[in-house]
Design a protein around this nucleic acid. Structure first.
Lengths: 267, 267
DNA sequence: CGTACCCTTGATATTCATCAAGCATTGTGG
DNA sequence: CCACAATGCTTGATGAATATCAAGGGTACG
């Protein structure tokens, strides 16, 4: 084993971190240029994969139906069960999408990142939103009424293809998550979730790659089908091994390859 | 509690089945007319949701690029990791789609039913198949080369919309499954899986609704992130309560509302 | 300055996987 | 047609992973 610790939790950290040289960094999300006060302008959406392949005129057409939508931290763009009347594109900020079951237990479906579509219930023929989307930080989105959708894809068929791809990517993610839930131990799932967050929302800092929005133990628990207690113990153990730096609603990855080794370990 | 049993397993059956009147039936999949020897003909695919809204000429155009594909029981249409060169529509039979993780553990992603598209890797921009599809019974499918896709959706934009809906529905299913895996106990998940199978592939029989293809304990375990041992114990307990009739690779639902009550119970 | 919120850590309980052994049915080759 | 292997299934005993319960500490914010 090579390392002796009294820490009750942390079987995989111990296993994986023994006799392995420390290693810095590895994850670095592309830095995103900060918009000042956003005005509705073609350039706002030109980079979104959802609108890839549309020319300037098409973008203007698309934009002409859009309404800006400010979402102060904590506010919901929509709530589970509400009639789905709009769909959205996130311009700036970060949203937390959650879903409740009949017994009131909640999971965190995903975080919405800038340039992501969300609330596309009409793409799946659902009359209501299947989840709740609320701002994890002050955010800004564009909203389209569902009624605009049919005309938009009729005039710009590329849109249907792009949306299909976006749904396909999310389907892939979901199936991967099912696989992880079915075959991995909690500690591995937490490692995977943290790495994904660092990739999607990591900003380089002195100590490593810091996750760019408030993230609680409860959030991580709801992402990994675990409990806030187990997440807390796991992060404490990782911190003791120098893999992460954990604070109140904040998390910095110091050793991404180390976390990856945990995620990849044999169960 | 009302009922006393020595059975070690079956907390929920006991709870749920005590003092509840027995109830018959409830699930009944539409019976599907048996095709004799299928020939490639417009009527074969006219009912598939994937081709809804296409007129006769469009259907003929679509069919002109399709190749029939016989899949004897046990044979794979494609295997995980193979380059994705075709996509398929199941005409007849039943396929089991599985997915392996890096450590070789397997889950059962879904069963493909007649009129379902499968192997649509190109819709999600994946160069390889993310899973393996093999025939659970002798099956028959149509196959299109991926190269035909672009032209098909260009000529028939409805196809992109239909495919988007199909992906959306599968995304919905996946997210529901994630919710179930995250919040339900094993017994509830097994109940949910059995009910879904009965709905999709149930055929009415004397004793109730019989699942129409060979289904092992291992299959159910891989669908519910459980083990064949736990599934076996669970089915035994249910059988003792008259909820199901379980045999070698066969399962008949005798009391669907009873199973539903288990699936809906508070954890 | 107090109160709500987030977090930590120990002790205990529970679910369920794992291991082990054996039975039953199907299919197969002599 | 029969022996026998392969496959699928059952059931008990045990143990490990992780949830749950309980108690308290720190920190931000009104």
């Amino acid at each position: 084993m090579g390392v002796s610790t009294r820490s009750r939790r942390a079987p995989l950290v111990q296993q994986v971190c023994s006799d392995r040289p420390l290693h810095k960094g590895g994850i670095c999300a592309p830095t995103r240029k900060e918009d000042g006060l956003p005005q509705i302008d073609r350039s706002l959406i030109a980079d979104a994969p959802a609108f890839a392949g549309l020319d300037a005129a098409a973008l203007d057409d698309v934009l002409s139906h859009a309404l800006p939508c400010r979402l102060p931290k904590g506010e919901a763009a929509f709530r589970q069960g509400e009639p789905a009347e709009k769909f959205f594109l996130l311009l700036h900020g970060r949203l937390r999408v959650t879903r409740l079951n009949a017994q009131g237990q909640q999971i965190l479906v995903r975080f919405v990142n800038p340039d992501d579509l969300f609330g596309v219930a009409m793409a799946i023929q659902s009359p209501v939103y299947p989840g709740t989307a609320e701002a994890a930080v002050d955010s800004l989105a564009l909203a389209w009424p569902n009624s605009a959708w049919a005309g938009m894809i009729a005039r710009h068929p590329t849109l249907a293809v792009n949306t299909m791809r976006a749904l396909g990517a999310r389907l892939q993610d979901s199936q991967q998550r099912i696989l992880d839930l079915s075959t991995q131990k909690v500690e591995q799932r937490i490692a995977g979730a943290v790495l994904r967050l660092a990739r999607q929302a990591g900003r380089p800092s002195e100590a490593g790659v810091k996750i760019d929005f408030p993230l609680s133990r409860q959030d991580l628990a709801e992402m990994t089908a675990s409990t806030l207690y187990t997440v807390s113990r796991t992060l404490s153990a990782w911190e003791a091994f120098g893999l992460v730096e954990a604070g109140r609603q904040s998390l910095t990855v110091r050793d991404a390859p180390g976390l990856q080794a945990i995620a990849d370990a044999e169960g």
